[in-house]
Amino acid sequence: MIRVQTEDFDVGAELKALARNGNVGAIVTFTGIVREFSGNHQLSAMTLEHYPGMTERQLAEIEAEARRRWPLDNSLIIHRHGRLEPGENIVLVITTSSHREAAFEAASFLMDWLKTKAPFWKLEDSAKGGGTWVAAKASDDTAADRWAASAKPARKVAG
């Protein structure tokens, strides 16, 4: 499931909803939060811009790819846009599976691909005034590349 929204989300409520399926043996959640410091400068807020339509399409493709690669029972991606202050939630990824390894790997994959493919852009508002567009990081590309098509799928490990 994909949701792109300005409103906050409730991690506990989302988890509970996904845990209802009786076959779930493992749930992994990742929450991304706005940091107060970017390098050594203090942020007052950040604004996330996105490309409506393409964002949903990309997230759905990324999720479908995760479900092709790992035996997931369910998955959820929520990504916020608009103005966010330090400490606020930005993104939530939840994966559920019978076993932990698939859930861990798929959650990691979803975040790595989302960061390099989903059309979002962060504008940081400095506490001193002025805005700076965040530059893409080479380390994010490297993280995404380790999931290249040749990567081995998860081994089956008892939960």
Binding site: G32, H50, F120, A136
Partner: peptide
Amino acid sequence: VALFPPVTGG
């Protein structure tokens, strides 16, 4: 056709 910088979400 959309033109944009490398993405920085997540």
